[in-house]
Write a protein that binds this DNA or RNA. Structure first.
Length: 585
DNA sequence: GCCGTTTTCGGCCCGACTGTTTTCAGTCG
């Protein structure tokens, strides 16, 4: 029973209580607790095992929810949820997933017409049976039919977008809106500005002279297939992206509110709620228009985001930290991390060449690294067990080492300063043994280890497998540790806490793989690693020269994990790096 | 249901858009 499952139960309870018409503050309590637990670093099970009372140290968890968590951990459910589900059909939860429908409407349809599935709702809307209900009309029916179409579409495809595709689309829309007359600034906000690993929509903030011109422009954008809502300052549209749809929300404010609007629009929702609560306690009011004195109504800040935080008695908080995971408390105490930046990165310790499954030669990769500005790289082609990826056998690896030396010498003769480390991405076999002998691995500068097979191995065996590889004491870096592919493959079952403890003991760094489909470790794992004193290697796992630029996704994910320069292996100067890689041997 | 630099009771974030209304509730972010 992991945290995610507890979150799911708490959210379901909140949804059902809301449909029942329970006190909204009680409903919110369950949502708050769920949101906090979702961002928790440690597993609830671990807390409950060691000291149950510490569950109430979690903000938003009091006596009642504490009890529910214990129940859920033990049985996967709790008496309250069981009561609610016996009272209300499960289909109501699906109906809640239809955009534009909230608890009140779902309850109305259920109680007055007995509608308890999305299919029934669609039928009723098409037959015109909803229009006579209070606060309902023909237009509402049409809206519901449309919303159900969208609901079905998102059910079929994965409804979240990868960071790289969302970034590209946002850039196009930004450029388009910048060309609208009277527009002064256009900025990407929302989860994309926070560099979440995937985004559900794109939020864009525009400032300038004329809001209606901006609203008209986005509604008329060539890729738009549907306008969901359009007002004087806010418009939502759907873009066609392949056979799926991406929602874009555009918001307009005047320059004097830009900072406050950017803050509001960047979120996260939980961060914003916490800030507005804080403002209120200070006798101030925070909205997208600024920080205001509640008594006099005068504006204290608004145009600049730094000033907004200042008016709330806080230093500036970087967008990546705004998840209400302790950043406001850290800011209060002056203990915000000094986040790593891309400029701190000195090298890249995971990449492939034509020797295995890469598209470019050693020399091409090296020259691209020089252009990127790296001081060092590690060439880490696959080992023999990865046959499909052209993994090298022992003889080929020896030749490969020689080939790297030849390129290194050639570049040195040309006066280049790039250092090329000889490495491997060695398979961690099913029994935890590495795919090359210790003798061979000892000849290399940088040993990156990874699991490439048997992903569906049961958790205890997978954990033991990886720990055995670390305990061989031949690994420098554990690569893409969970094996997940965002939206495509679940992380494999393993005990991250246990793996990290052993990695810390053996001086093994954990990789943050910057490939936008991986981002593995993910943000909260990075923070966990930091707490355990582990080093992180932010690497691109490049299979061609064109993908070094993915480093930016890795760096920003590291920032989401509160990482600083000193937490990162590849921010070290060469001498220090080599010392760490040699593990004093 | 949770919480407290004013509180153990009485609060609990703020505003835009929509469709239905004659002044606002529901939903969303």
């Amino acid at each position: 029973m992991n945290n995610k499952e507890v979150v799911r139960v708490l959210v379901t309870i909140a949804d059902l209580l809301e449909i029942k018409g329970e006190n909204m503050f009680r409903v919110r309590s369950y949502r708050n607790a769920a949101a906090t637990i979702d961002g928790l670093l440690v597993s609830l099970e671990l807390i409950a095992e060691t000291d149950e009372d510490r569950l109430e140290d979690i903000p938003g968890v009091g006596k009642a929810i504490h009890g529910k968590i214990i129940e859920i951990l033990a049985s996967g459910s709790c008496a309250l949820l069981d009561d609610l589900t016996s009272e209300l059909p499960a289909g109501l939860l699906d109906m809640l997933g239809v955009s534009g429908l909230g608890a009140k409407k779902v309850k109305l349809f259920y109680q007055s017409l007995g509608i308890d599935t999305v299919d029934d709702l669609e039928e009723a809307a098409l037959e015109g049976r909803l229009r006579d209900l209070p606060k309902m009309g023909e237009k509402s029916e049409q809206k519901i039919v449309k919303a159900i179409e969208r609901y079905r579409r998102t059910q079929k495809s994965s409804k979240r977008f990868r960071l790289d595709s969302a970034t590209a689309i946002a850039a196009e829309v930004t450029e388009y809106l910048s060309g609208v007359e009277g527009v002064e600034t256009v900025e990407v906000a929302g989860s994309l500005r926070r560099w979440r690993e995937s985004v559900g929509d794109i939020d864009i903030l525009v400032t300038g002279q004329d809001g209606t011109a901006v609203m008209d422009a986005i509604a008329a954008y060539s890729e738009v297939v549907e306008v969901i809502g359009k007002g004087d300052t806010k418009t939502s549209v759907l873009l066609a992206v392949g056979n799926t749809r991406l929602q874009i929300d555009v918001r307009f404010v005047e320059g004097a509110s830009k900072g406050a609007a950017l803050n509001y629009f960047t979120g996260s929702k939980e961060h914003g709620v916490a800030l507005r609560g804080r403002a209120k306690r200070m006798g101030r009011k925070l909205s997208e228009y600024g920080v205001f004195d509640e008594e006099t109504g005068s504006q204290l800040a608004g145009g600049d985001e730094v000033e907004v935080y200042k008016a709330l008695g806080l230093p500036y908080i970087e967008p990546e930290l705004r998840e209400n995971r302790g950043e406001i408390e850290a800011a209060e105490k002056g203990e915000l991390p000094c986040l790593i930046t891309e400029a701190d990165i000195r090298g890249n310790l995971h990449m492939h060449t034509t020797a295995s499954d890469g598209a470019n030669t050693i020399e091409e990769m090296a020259r691209a690294a020089i252009v990127t500005g790296y001081e060092y790289i590690a060439i880490t082609d696959h080992s023999k067990a990865s046959g499909i990826a052209g993994g090298l056998d022992e003889k080929e690896l020896l030749k490969h080492i020689n080939d790297i030396n030849v390129v290194a010498r050639k570049l040195k003769d040309e006066g280049e300063e790039l250092i090329i480390l000889k490495g491997t991405e060695v398979d961690i076999l099913a029994n935890g043994v590495l795919d090359y002998s210790d003798e061979l691995l000892s000849m290399l500068d940088c040993v990156v280890g990874a699991v490439h097979s048997g992903f569906d191995m049961e958790g205890e065996r997978m954990t033991a497998r990886i720990i055995a590889a670390i305990e061989s004491d031949m690994l420098n870096i554990l690569a893409h540790s969970t094996g997940r592919l965002i939206g495509a493959r679940e992380p494999y079952d393993m005990d991250m806490n246990a793996v990290m403890d052993v990695a810390a003991e053996f001086g093994v760094a954990m990789e943050l793989n910057s490939y936008p489909q991986r981002l593995d470790l993910k943000d909260i794992h990075c923070r966990m690693a930091k707490d355990k004193g582990l080093l992180i290697s932010i690497a691109t796992d490049s299979h061609s020269t064109g993908t070094f630029s993915n480093m930016t996704y890795g760096v920003h994910t590291a920032r989401r994990g509160w990482l600083e320069k000193q937490n990162i292996l590849n921010t070290r100067a060469l001498g220090e790096l080599l010392k760490i890689l040699k593990k004093d041997r």
